[in-house]
């Protein structure tokens, strides 16, 4: 870990200068001695709260690396890391208005959002699917006709659902929920028939549910696998370069795969369940050839 930090610092050495020459987020970090990370509360296993009210997850670990790299590059002895919970709905305005510096969660990287924010290298790919109670026997998108479904407000999934609803004339009642846990709760309580979300997050929610055996995933996806990226402010090239360098080095090193195995192929808190999502060809390519492309076809 230290070696990596030093390596990054060495790489950055030519550009290293006093605080006056810094710009954007790096300047802010140097001047204030703090960095604020936006995190999620129920994006298992990316960014969520464990039983001790601690924020943990795959994205949090990756952000940790970026924070270390920033600290090393800026030659700071001490860097305060502040955490702020964000939702799908608040994360983009909060990045833009400087409330958070990095968003460490499960945010889909797409071209539309890139007009507002920037992303570092993709750290996961997931398709939109739905989860429902087994007893309801809902497997395909067609099965949702006339049903009440829920999705998380501000997610790409929400937009896909309302678009599909209009385009295919499904006549679904679409409820917005504040976050993934609240949305899943509506399915648990039978307030909604299905929860439409990224399949990996649904798997994580089912794994941490009271009775995982009650639920099933859909057979059909609403979208192609789309990239997840850690968000940062737009037009902040030096900070993005640092984040890109750090994540690329991490993904290509054995540590990258180890980190993946830690969260996706081993038991994770709070219930010690193993999500068991092996590194498929697409994900392996993502680690070997890091990219921040928003195009699903690039993977």
């Amino acid at each position: 870990m230290k070696l990596l930090g030093i390596a990054v610092a060495l790489l950055a050495l030519p550009g290293l200068a006093s605080a006056q020459d810094l710009t954007g987020t790096l300047k802010k970090i140097k001047e204030t001695g703090t960095i604020t990370l936006g995190h999620r509360e129920s994006s298992v296993p990316f960014s969520y709260i464990d039983n001790n009210a601690k924020v943990i997850g795959y994205s949090m670990d990756i952000c940790g690396k970026i924070v270390e790299a920033a600290k090393a590059e800026l030659k700071m002895d001490k860097l305060d890391v502040r955490l702020l919970p964000v939702t799908s709905s608040t994360r983009i305005p909060l990045i833009a208005n400087g409330t958070i510096d990095l968003e460490c969660g499960s945010t889909t990287n797409n071209a539309e959002r890139q007009k507002q924010v920037a992303y570092t290298n993709t750290h996961f790919l997931t398709a939109s699917a739905f989860v429902s109670k087994k007893a309801k026997n809902l497997k395909k998108i067609e099965d949702l006709k006339g049903k009440t479904v829920v999705s998380t407000a501000g997610s790409t999934n929400m937009k896909q659902v309302v678009e599909a609803n209009a385009a295919k004339g499904l006549g679904m009642t679409v409820l917005p929920a504040k976050d993934h846990a609240a949305a899943f709760l509506l399915v648990e309580l039978d307030r909604a028939d299905a929860f439409i979300m990224d399949d990996i997050l649904l798997a994580g929610l089912v794994a941490s549910a009271k009775d995982p055996g009650l639920y099933q995933m859909s057979d059909e996806a609403f979208s192609l696998p789309e990239p997840y990226g850690i968000m940062l402010r737009k037009d902040d090239a030096p900070f993005k370069a640092l984040a890109d360098r750090t994540t690329a080095a991490l993904f290509k090193s054995p540590e990258g795969e180890a980190l993946y195995r830690k969260w996706f192929m081993s038991p994770i808190p709070p219930n010690g369940i193993n999500l068991n999502v092996p590194l498929n060809a697409m994900l392996r390519k993502m680690l070997e050839k890091p990219t921040d492309s928003a195009d699903p076809a690039a993977y």
């Binding site: 954007g24 204030t32 502040r82 702020l84 919970p85 208005n97 400087g98 409330t99």
Partner: peptide
């Protein structure tokens, strides 16, 4: 740059 205001302050 926009002033960082924490959740409590906001």
């Amino acid at each position: 740059r926009p002033v960082e205001v924490g959740a409590f302050a906001s």
